[in-house]
Design a protein around this nucleic acid. Sequence first.
DNA 1: TTATCGCGGATAATTTTTGTCTGTAATTAG
DNA 2: CTAATTACAGACAAAAATTATCCGCGATAA
Lengths: 163, 163
Amino acid sequence: MKHGNQVEWALHCAATLAALEPGVRLSAQALAELYEAPPKYLAKALQALSRAGLVESTSGPRGGYTLARPARDIRVIDIVQAVQGEERLFQCTEIRRKGPCRKVASSCFTKTCQLASIMWSAESAWRKELEKHTLESILRSVEQEVSPVILKVVRGWVEEKAS
Amino acid sequence: MKHGNQVEWALHCAATLAALEPGVRLSAQALAELYEAPPKYLAKALQALSRAGLVESTSGPRGGYTLARPARDIRVIDIVQAVQGEERLFQCTEIRRKGPCRKVASSCFTKTCQLASIMWSAESAWRKELEKHTLESILRSVEQEVSPVILKVVRGWVEEKAS
DNA sequence: TTATCGCGGATAATTTTTGTCTGTAATTAG
DNA sequence: CTAATTACAGACAAAAATTATCCGCGATAA
């Protein structure tokens, strides 16, 4: 029914990492402070990004996360899927086959339920929209539209906490 | 993260009602048998459709539900929203304002977060897709593509249970 | 060597979803 | 009129998912 805040965190964290100078890293702890999120729980989201190969992690003191590839090669859909899984929003449980239709041979049914197929086409429109946006395009729009005051505050804070 | 089966039930029930002869009704009990759903719980979904003005209900023996308006005037999006509410899939909690950015004046922030706006544009693409389909268009495709065997079974069953 | 950090798995708390129950009003059949 | 059936709202209960913490391990930097 609605996406968890893991998705919101992951998007913001990824965007933050995208804005980092090359070689610079941010730890889960630091990102948790930046967004006032529960550190261990946010870490789970970051680990999901890591498993999906979107970010790279380094252990040990002064360890943390960086993007695993150029910002232009990471799409919003990649981040969302990494965190909330590949599972479909709409789940078809084949209720068309229930009740009186149990008598009907399985071979009589079209391969996908018409209603499911409508719901899934909507999902794929959703997905397609999220494919259009990359961390690079986000960064561009942020740099254009976000107040310099904010950028300065965040950049200062990052410098303090990073590497 | 995913839609409840209330949505699936509501869609199938609505499609079933759309196929009814004028004046004929089906009770929540009957629909629950048709889809092997918990009667009282399915009833909640039907009541949501009723509150949304999509179906009309009649109390008393031989009571039940019919569409409140022509099938061509009921879109899939109407049914989905009636059941799962108007709430957005993605919830922006304004985490961009947290941590170090708490110092920044509220007026410095653009009215909507860039990331939220991307997520919401995807949602609106999803919505738009569901606006394209009506119960009428579903009925047409069902009559074209669903095996006559199934149609006969369901129609027979409906005749038995309906009033 | 020690402290920091990522990672996976186990566990706990909280919230949502799913499902049931009760009482009331409406309506039909007898 | 009475009894049975149905919708409906609200309270309640059970189950599942989400949210959050904890522990132990391996890696790494100082």
